[in-house]
């Protein structure tokens, strides 16, 4: 396969990699916290009716 078919991936400097890692970690934590928050709020709002969905 011809190597020129694919664009060369950008090489990040160690500093850029560290910054990317910091952002990824924070984003992961925020998304995880949102999952927990939405779950807990749903339970708090619906309480015992959380599974009560008559068809």
């Amino acid at each position: 396969m011809n190597d020129e078919t694919y664009p060369t991936l950008a090489k990040l400097t160690p500093e850029e990699l560290a910054r990317q890692k910091s952002r990824s970690r924070a984003l992961g934590l925020v998304l995880g916290a949102l999952v927990v928050l939405f779950f807990v709020v749903t339970i708090a709002k619906l309480g015992g009716n959380v599974l009560n969905r008559p068809l």
Partner: peptide
């Protein structure tokens, strides 16, 4: 730069 220079604390 096309690569973000931000740390999480910047946000």
């Amino acid at each position: 730069s096309l690569v973000s220079q931000a740390m999480a604390k910047d946000y």
